[in-house]
Amino acid sequence: MSCGKPIAHLWEEFNKRVNEGEEVKKVLDDLGLERFCCRTVFISHVDLIDEVAKFKKS
């Protein structure tokens, strides 16, 4: 985000572990995301691709 750190590859693991009921703080710490800007991205992201993919592009 602000500094340019690549974090995309961590999203699927984060999502999986949080859905399995792990504590968000613990997962973020495990993934090595120290700065609050990295953490915000993960906490606030809503994955919409599954919804959007059903519709046709015009």
Binding site: P6, A8, H9, W11, E12, I49, D50, A53, K54
Partner: peptide
């Protein structure tokens, strides 16, 4: 790619 598991896009059946 440095990080092999970076998602680019999800494809459904037929895409």
């Amino acid at each position: 790619a440095v990080y092999p598991k970076m998602p680019i896009v999800k494809l459904l059946e037929g895409q």
